[in-house]
């Protein structure tokens, strides 16, 4: 490591871990070195805090602004940023909360973090050209079972033990303050997805979630559908396929054995 890159490694440690520069390394004629360094430490914490606050607005409302600051500080200490693009920061929040003692009394909080990250992810996901239905027409019907569907890269499927999307909706701007949600009334399956209108949270049937998850894992449609029907005999493939094509959730396919 040449001297100047060594200085930057030290600078990083000064900003993040409260280390000190080597004596004489820094020149600050008009204020102390500590004052100069403080600007960078404040920026570092402030930028990451604001990024988390932007990605997790409902969580911030649920725990309150002051406690969110504490929580964010702990998160930042454990999870440094890895990208020059701040929109990528904060994805480990749900995993962090699973081990965070101080919010253990809010067992639905990790799921809410998952939901908000899914929303954030969908919001910034790439645009894709619309799916060309004529491609499907060119597939022989007896090959349908081999279709390997691609889900929109912004899609996330979530399963929670709590009525998550209700709780999320109740905390959106313009929704009356008073709401009555029984957190023990049962869970739900949510599809977070961006369409032409923006990001949507769609409460979906367990069978649809079961099927889409298997497609997302890369199973051929025939295998995925058999598995879903064995758990949910009422699942209707044609309806689901039409629906999720129209919604822009299914955006393309390969054919098993022909990919690559």
């Amino acid at each position: 490591m040449t001297h100047w890159t060594h200085t930057l490694a030290q600078f990083s440690s000064v900003i993040r871990n409260g280390a000190d520069f080597a004596p004489g390394e820094i020149i600050c004629p008009n204020y102390s070195v500590a004052r100069g360094v403080e600007v960078y430490r404040n920026n570092y914490r402030g930028n990451l805090h604001d990024t988390l606050a932007g990605a997790y607005p409902v969580m911030r409302l649920l725990v309150g602004e002051d406690f969110f600051r504490v929580l964010a500080k702990c998160f930042i200490e454990q999870h440094p940023s890895r990208s020059g693009n701040l929109h990528r920061y904060g994805g480990e929040m749900a995993a962090f909360l699973t081990h965070f003692e101080r919010t253990r009394h809010l067992p639905y909080l990790p799921d809410m973090a998952r939901l908000e990250w899914a929303y954030h992810h969908a919001y910034f996901a790439d645009d894709l050209p619309p799916f060309d239905l004529s491609r499907l027409a060119s597939v022989a019907p007896d090959s349908y079972g081999d279709l390997l569907w691609k889900l929109h890269p912004g899609c996330t499927l979530l399963t929670s033990d709590y009525p998550l999307s209700q709780l999320w909706l109740a905390h959106q701007a313009g929704v009356p303050d008073a709401f009555d949600i029984n957190m023990n009334e049962g869970g739900e399956h949510v599809l977070v997805h961006r369409n032409e209108e923006g990001v949507e949270l769609i409460h979906i049937a367990p069978a649809s979630c079961h099927w889409l998850l298997r497609l997302q894992r890369g199973l051929p449609m025939g295998v995925a559908t058999e598995a879903t029907i064995s758990d949910y005999p009422d699942f209707d493939l044609a309806t689901a396929l039409r629906h999720y094509l129209a919604q822009g959730v299914l955006v393309g396919f390969d054919i098993a054995g022909e990919e690559g």
């Binding site: 600078f11 993040r16 920026n43 930028n47 440094p80």
Partner: peptide, 13 residues
């Protein structure tokens, strides 16, 4: 540096 980003505009020698 070292895979860790500081999302700021930082000076160098």
């Amino acid at each position: 540096v070292g895979g860790i980003a500081i999302n700021d505009l930082l000076p160098f020698p």
